[in-house]
Amino acid sequence: MATDIFEILRLNKQQILQLWLQNQQTDTEFSDNFNTADELRAQSAEFVDLLLSTLNENNIHDFSSPDLEPLIDYVSSLTISRARQGFSPRETATYIFTLKDSLLKVLSDQISGDLSQLYQATIQISRFVDNIGIQSFETFITGREEVISQQSDEMAELSTPVIRVWNGILAMPIIGTLDSARTQVVMENLLQGIVDTGSSIAILDISGVPAVDSLVAQHLIKTVNATRLMGAECIISGIRPEIAQTVVHLGIDLSQMITKATLESALKFAFNSLQLEVRRIQKDKVI
């Protein structure tokens, strides 16, 4: 004579909610984070409602079951809204796991006679609430990952500005490591800058690049060659002594590109090839 545990839980909904709210209050960790107790109460009530109305003997074993989708969506949005309110993932997880305590308390009160059934039910409910907890964690991490990937995109954009230093001359200071993803952004921005401004000389300043190994050198060579295909010349400037040393020690061949120690000498070279000249103006002395 198996008693329907879901029926028991549904019948004792009010008590479960009451117990859960009590558990939450005894848990000192989250006391004042929520704006009002009413709000917490409403949210918890909605959660219990949804949980008890969707849970049945089929889907308790199958967390990917389609009829659980509303519940999972609810957990996800709950996690996101709590994260925005400043709850730590531990607090949200504790919030969910305290629900388990109240569910199990009700069950043990109601089916205290049949220990083996109580044991089965306890395991089932535990697993299910654990899954909800995992779902909440996953949502939290996914949200973080979204933010991180968005930020790294923004960083890639920000860290590769194309500056028009003169009519026909572009400069692009590179700060940070030049990996292949970065090189792609650098190339795209530089080449697009060349098209947009009709520049014939581009200066790539690598004084902000911490180290040049053979891979970075390869990326620089690629950028120079791609610039040439567009019909412009690319000068690499900002070769620090350490960089010159490692380049030679590693036996990297940079002879096919124009390299200059400083941005200043690169600019001079550029002026020269555009047949421009910078001169000091002789002013009449007034003394």
């Binding site: 792609q184 190339m187 791609a226 567009m230």
Partner: peptide, 16 residues
């Protein structure tokens, strides 16, 4: 030459 075409040619290994 379009920028995307130039980048692709270099990656393809064809610097013309």
């Amino acid at each position: 030459m379009q920028p995307a075409v130039a980048i692709t040619l270099i990656e393809l290994g064809l610097p013309l």
